[in-house]
């Protein structure tokens, strides 16, 4: 028997194919990926799903505590996008676009289910809660434990809007432009101001409380 046969078992077949999809699209710009998807490229759809479904779930769950509702919304969003292939408009930042879309879809569904008014203005309890991993400080020379506790408390003092912007900016790595669009600000600089003020008030909190 040949020691080095050209074997292609099923355990290799599928992953290799997936790897190639990622390789192909990783190097492309969001614009190109979106165009490929719009033209009906199944690999592009595959890439979009695999790349963003987990992030959409994490982000979407901030608007509803019902996992099956969030999952249904993700499913509906992709079905909608597939149906609209061929007539979708240009998208330069896919993540920002998908986040906006899933936000709209979930709020619509939550509203329909609860018939509450103004869900999108009044944030619910426990939305966009932040965890701060250790080894963090905004001010030098504090004791390790103390400063970590201070940052955590400081973060908890922030408004939900501020926490949301901070998560979108640092955790999700979205630009101010994308954040402004997701948060419905007419001007990009409003997003920057929101972050800047959050940081300033956090620093202030740590300074005054720490002394």
């Amino acid at each position: 028997m040949n020691n080095n046969p050209k074997k292609q078992s099923d355990s290799i077949f599928i992953p290799v194919k997936h790897l190639e999809t990622i390789k192909v699209f990783e190097k492309k710009s969001d614009c190109d990926i979106w165009n490929a998807f719009n033209k009906g490229d199944e690999m592009a759809f595959n890439y979009l799903y695999r790349t963003y479904v987990q992030e959409l779930y994490q982000f979407g769950s901030q608007y509803s505590r019902d996992p099956s509702l969030v999952k249904d919304c993700i499913q509906n969003l992709f079905i909608y996008l597939r149906k609209k292939r061929g007539e979708l408009s240009e998208v330069t930042n896919i993540k920002g676009y998908l986040f906006r879309s899933i936000q709209r879809e979930i709020i619509k569904n939550v509203k329909a289910n609860t018939s509450l008014k103004g869900v999108e203005d009044d944030f619910l309890e426990g939305q966009f809660e932040i965890e701060v991993s250790p080894e963090v400080s905004l001010i030098q020379n504090e004791s390790e434990v103390e400063r970590n506790r201070l940052v955590k408390d400081g973060i908890d003092q922030l408004t939900t809007k501020q926490r949301m912007a901070i998560l979108l900016f640092y955790e999700e790595e979205l630009s101010y432009k994308e954040i402004a669009e997701i948060m419905n600000f007419s001007e990009v600089k409003t997003a920057r101001k929101l972050i800047y003020r959050a940081l300033a008030s956090l620093k202030e909190y740590i300074k005054t409380t720490g002394e």
Binding site: Q58, I130, E131, V132, V136, S137, I166, E171
Partner: peptide, 22 residues
Amino acid sequence: NFARAIHYKEKLEFGNDSYIEI
């Protein structure tokens, strides 16, 4: 350090079953 330390408090896993099912 600060920028790297910010995470969602609750990590929600989409899960393999949902991934395939959806």
